[in-house]
């Protein structure tokens, strides 16, 4: 799914990385725990999180992810936005809860790993 389409569905504000909105990102991972995100090395994922710290951006950077969507209206700091810009990572922000954001994106066809032991 194109990142721009995700932004539309989630009525999200694009805080930085407009240039990535045309990117097709086929998978998603959603967690507030970064080690749970770091379980998989897949890079073609969007990271959906309610954890709004520099570590969320760093996790995206380490995994070569192109976009982070913050749920529950979390506001990223200037430091986070700068780190995201330096690493070509888009930051989106939505008022949707984690549950609703994931549900809406899934309903519209976005998928993620179903089981942790899936290859």
């Amino acid at each position: 799914m194109e990142l721009g389409r995700m932004a539309e569905i989630l009525e999200a504000e694009v805080i930085c990385g407009q240039e990535n909105l045309h990117l097709d990102i086929p998978l998603a991972v959603a967690s507030d725990m970064m080690s749970d995100v770091l379980v998989s090395t897949e890079c073609d994922r969007v990271l959906i999180s309610g954890l709004c710290t520099i570590h969320t951006v760093l996790t995206a950077q380490i995994l070569d992810l192109k976009a982070v969507i913050f749920v529950r209206n979390k506001v990223p700091t200037a430091e986070m936005i700068e780190a995201a810009r330096e690493n070509d990572i888009s930051i989106l922000r939505t008022g949707f809860t984690m549950f609703a954001a994931c549900g809406e994106l899934y309903k519209h066809g976005l998928r993620g790993r179903r089981r942790v032991d899936e290859q």
Partner: peptide, 18 residues
């Protein structure tokens, strides 16, 4: 530490897996 998104108990298993 958990408030900052770590302490999920996946750190060492993740290192070994990688």
């Amino acid at each position: 530490v958990r408030m900052l998104g770590f302490g999920a108990g996946m750190g060492m298993p993740n290192m070994k897996r990688c």
